[in-house]
Design a protein around this nucleic acid. Structure first.
Lengths: 207, 207
DNA sequence: ATCTGGTTAAACTATGTGGTTAAACCTAAT
DNA sequence: ATTAGGTTTAACCACATAGTTTAACCAGAT
């Protein structure tokens, strides 16, 4: 009795709030974010904010879990294909970096909050509908099939993640020390999409 | 007339404050840190805190610049040797990861604060006594000397940084998805010290 | 017409926080 | 003995913030 009755306004109030909270929390973190700012961003008032999500923590948890779910399901599903390793690597890196470009605040947001509250990871990981162990089984198979250096799959996994994610969170530093404009930085990332798979394949291929 | 008169207490009050502020700011960030907590951690009271560093921002800037200086000078000086590239890489990675292990909060702290205030980088980079361009000249020479794939030095530089730093800031996540105890995580990093140089050399060596 | 749930406005509480102040204390240098 | 700088204590101010409350408003459902 309370659903789908809106045709003109595309977003429900709850969605508007979550969108606004996402923006603010991603940029400023839990401590830096202000409920008033979120309300303003959502175009509503503070009272309504508390009417939907009773506390700041509730709202934050919703945003945090959503971000976590997004980045992990994206990661775990982009490997779900039957093409050979090199091809798979290309797809994974390309898709994942594209995702990160569109959601550049997510990794920094998650890592920062997680470093401040490492215990939250247990709770928050429950909202991820994909299991990491499955992913590793698949990766292990791919790696063993080919003529490659003996490679610890976990090591490889972390290396791929590092190479994809770090440049995104270190953007301000990279732009400064390389004196990149915004466009030049984007080109730099664009180039990585092509060169990272080569870099990684070289690293693990038998000589 | 106001110096070196202390023999028993190893640290001056100012140093005690800076140490305390470092701990608190590194763990909680600017917004999350409380002046009272810093005072407690330093074993003094709030009044004295403001007596030394008038404002929270002053104190934070001091801590931030110190962290920045530390991590960058360390990075830039570990490449300052005349050994062949592979050796140099081994040294760099080993020394840098050791440094990061001992200062595991620094990279996350800097990246988080820099993402929230990217404009601060200009000011803060002035406190780094080493220039990055010098580093790149040296790296370029090393890379061109050997029989290697044509490699963009900047790309290589970022890759090395990514592979060293990311695992440190992603520690809570890594520990959880790999189900690592603290000891196992340390072993994981220890292993990386040896395997990262191999990984990278393979990646850039001509086949 | 009325009822209901979403919504607003504005005032309000309680608490925490950065920062200040003033008085007293202690100790080492003069 | 006096001075001066570092230090403590404790009270204090101004302000911002999370969260609450109340009354009124409005639109769609009954």
């Amino acid at each position: 009795m309370w659903l789908n009755l809106m045709a003109k306004k595309a977003l429900t109030t709850e969605e508007k709030i979550l969108e606004a909270a996402k923006k603010v929390f991603h940029r400023k973190g839990y401590e830096g974010a202000r409920m008033q700012e979120i309300a303003d961003e959502a175009g509503i008032n503070k009272a309504l904010l508390h009417y939907y999500f009773r506390t700041k923590e509730n709202l934050f948890d919703a945003v945090f879990k959503a971000a976590f779910r997004e980045i992990f399901t994206k990661l775990f599903t982009t490997v779900d294909s039957n093409v050979p390793l090199e091809e798979k690597l290309k797809n994974l890196i390309n898709e994942y970096i594209c995702f990160l470009q569109k959601n550049s605040y997510i990794p920094g947001f998650i890592l920062a909050e997680l470093n401040q509250n490492p215990e939250k990871i247990i709770e928050v990981f429950k909202s991820v509908p994909v299991s990491p162990s499955l992913l590793f089984e698949r990766m292990k198979k791919s790696v063993n099939d080919e003529k490659l250096e003996k490679t610890d799959v976990r090591e490889l996994f972390i290396n791929i993640l590092s190479l994809c994610i770090f440049p995104i969170i270190a953007r301000p530093m990279i732009q400064h020390i390389f004196e990149f404009s915004d466009e030049e930085f984007d080109q730099f990332i664009e180039k990585r999409k092509k060169e990272l798979p080569v870099f990684i394949m070289n690293a693990i291929r038998k000589k």
